[in-house]
Nucleic acid binder design. Structure first.
Lengths: 335, 335
DNA sequence: CTGAAAGCGCTAACAA
DNA sequence: TTGTTAGCGCTTTCAG
């Protein structure tokens, strides 16, 4: 019942335990474990064997303390369950891995609070932060202090770096396509998660005005199921709708479901355009026409920007640290 | 041009810098930064303000070294781009977050090597490892030493803990359903990524023999596009196929595409059953009948098992550390 | 309410 | 080829 035995795994072996067992100095253990030169093969093997037997693993804290290196970046994401985010995360992880950085992922969906909670959890663990922080990007930067934060989809750019999307351009692309197709009764299905990207709605509205398109805006929760329900209701209230532009591809999948359920042929009766360009779109029936972002390039941009910020090549808050990416229209079957 | 000024961000501020600036001891700074008692409000605020000005952030290494706490788990995943894995990762992250652990994600797809490389990258950073390690689970455990590894979908269970799936059960469920439906000419579309889960193929074969079902096995790469191509070829070579059981849901999505392209009605002409139970299945047309795993419970099982291993409640390698989960048949439209 | 001392486990630099 | 010394930045005693 001593303090020592209360921990199930006993005290972790330290370099000193190994050194003692092998009858060498701790320095020799370091050399053996890290494949450093200046040690005989026999000693090296003996030390390594002993280390394995004792279950010795160098403490990452002690090593980090003395070596300083090892960048670890936090990735704050609203919902790994919407395929957009893993697609993005995947490219961030890939880019980070190439640089020898490691990525700590935090998902603030599923009742894990807000982006701010996420930043709070990550802050003590990481040297930098990338994330969909929405309106919290400023607060997140405050929590992180001097460590760089790259906020995505945050037009205000209140963090060290930001990646924004040119929704005005996307909206023009989408509505332009619908106009050419003589669609007269267009609906924009927005996400009701407000703040995070009200930008889309405004941009679509402006583009509609430019083109003199009659536009109705509705909103639903950001899932396929919720979008489906919203469109089912819409169809009852406004049977003459002939085009729906959707906040994102996942919701567009739900829209397609509602339409087929409501016996509307797509694109003949109703055209549908999504937004994101995730691979899911190609698997749907009909295949989804969408305003596509190259997700890999978004990840690359975010990590690249962070790299610049970290190395000092890019100044925090400068215009070089505020990137804007554009969607492109990928025409498939639904519009 | 001194060594000091060569680093773009200057030397990071330490607790001593703040203490000096505030004219207090480092202890007082610690108390101020960590909201500890025994310090006047005025001092606390002054210290915090100075800390912010200096851009001081406590070193996670120094803190970790002295506090010891803070579990961080590595998550090794083959491909964040297949929706199965994010769904799983999402629940792992959620469960871990609830315990105050943080998770470092490594994706070994996209040319980032094998599961073993992934384990190697993660090992120095984490206290435990969860992953789809396939045949490498033993080697990964060796790299991790005494730190627990939970391997998924690895029937050999050569790590401290393992989560396996009862493919025999799944296969019986799937083929049983097809048999009741009088399907006579069944194909199993396997993944050609061999090792990682040859278990599925064997199980399906055995179940077919039990039921005297004529079974053909084919294989393709593990993507929707590759599955699609494989089935297009299959249709040409064997036009009388009336049921396809597929390695996973993503590939099943490709199968559905190939079938509609080949003018086969699903399920009338050909029944399709997927495997995984990812949300994608519900978005397809027709909606995918599938052998579903409750992904959230898989994540919960993995993290729970790890928790037991870490706390000593579960002994590494014991039978309590080898969990087996079962699929259930979710009947939607495709079969 | 504040400070001084000790030490977490490791590696870099320097000796032997 | 090996060992000794010093110190990374922080928090936990224990004293004032």
């Amino acid at each position: 019942m001593s303090a020592r035995s209360s921990s199930p795994g006993q005290r972790r072996a330290t370099i000193l335990d190994v050194a003692a067992a092998a009858g060498v100095s701790r320095q020799t253990v370091t050399r053996a474990m890290n494949g450093m030169p200046g040690i005989s093969q026999a000693t090296r093997e003996r030390v390594q064997r002993l280390a394995a037997e004792l279950g010795y693993t160098p403490s990452r804290f002690a090593r980090g303390l003395v070596q300083g290196a090892n960048v670890s970046v936090g990735l704050a994401i609203p919902d790994l369950t919407n395929p957009y985010f893993p697609a993005f995360a995947s490219s961030v992880v890939e880019e980070a891995t190439q640089r020898g950085w490691n990525v700590v992922v935090d998902d603030y969906g599923h009742g894990a609070g807000s982006a701010l909670d996420s930043a709070g959890r990550l802050a003590p663990q990481v040297d930098a932060l990338i994330g969909y922080l929405g309106e919290h990007s400023r607060a997140a930067q405050a929590i992180m202090g001097r460590r760089p934060v790259v906020g995505l989809d945050d037009p205000q750019a209140e963090a060290a770096g930001s990646i924004s999307f040119d929704y005005a351009h996307a909206a023009r692309l989408g509505l332009g396509h619908l106009a050419e197709d003589r669609r007269r009764r267009v609906v924009f299905l927005d996400s009701d998660q407000g703040g995070i990207a009200a930008g889309r709605g405004h941009a679509v509205e402006a583009a509609a005005r430019e083109r003199d398109i009659r536009l109705q805006q509705i909103a639903s929760g950001p899932s396929a199921a919720e979008a489906r329900r919203a469109v089912t209701d819409l169809l009852a209230a406004a049977p003459d709708v002939d085009a729906i532009l959707v906040f994102n591809d996942l919701m567009a999948a739900g829209v397609l479901k509602a339409l087929s359920e409501g016996k509307r042929a797509v694109p003949r009766d109703v055209a549908v355009i999504g937004m994101d360009g995730i691979p899911l779109g190609e698997l749907l029936t009909p295949e989804l026409t969408t305003l596509s972002l190259d997700l890999r390039s978004v990840g690359r941009a975010a990590v690249g920007l962070l790299d610049g910020l970290l190395s000092g090549a890019v100044e925090a808050g400068s215009s070089a640290a505020a990137l804007t990416l554009r969607h492109e229209l990928v025409i498939r079957q639904s519009a």
